[in-house]
């Protein structure tokens, strides 16, 4: 059990580093989602099932969608081009 726990902890630190150092904001957000799932696994190993359930639902589902909405807000030109392409296709 300890070896598995150490493996999860190393992976957790790696995903946190990627979320911190990635150039693209989108990669950092997806890495943060993986970080949340791994944190839920850590909570299960630490015998806290309630906290693990909350962490899995909120930090990898809700927070990620909040980040994606706010990120797409700052990318308006791309969205506009995409919509125009669709309009031309029709």
């Amino acid at each position: 059990m300890t070896a598995f726990f150490a493996f999860v902890c190393v992976f957790l630190a790696l995903t946190a580093l990627v979320a911190s150092e990635a150039e693209e904001v989108l990669s950092a957000v997806i890495s943060l989602s993986v970080f949340g799932v791994l944190m839920a696994m850590v909570f299960v190993i630490l015998q806290a099932p309630d906290v693990a359930l909350t962490q899995a639902v909120i930090n990898s589902g809700l927070v990620t969608s909040f980040f994606l909405v706010a990120y797409s807000q700052t990318q308006k030109p791309n969205l506009l081009e995409q919509k125009q392409d669709i309009g031309d296709g029709q």
Partner: peptide
């Protein structure tokens, strides 16, 4: 980057 700041807050 302000997004990176919020990500750091979550971590």
């Amino acid at each position: 980057n302000l997004f990176k700041t919020v990500i750091g807050l979550t971590i």
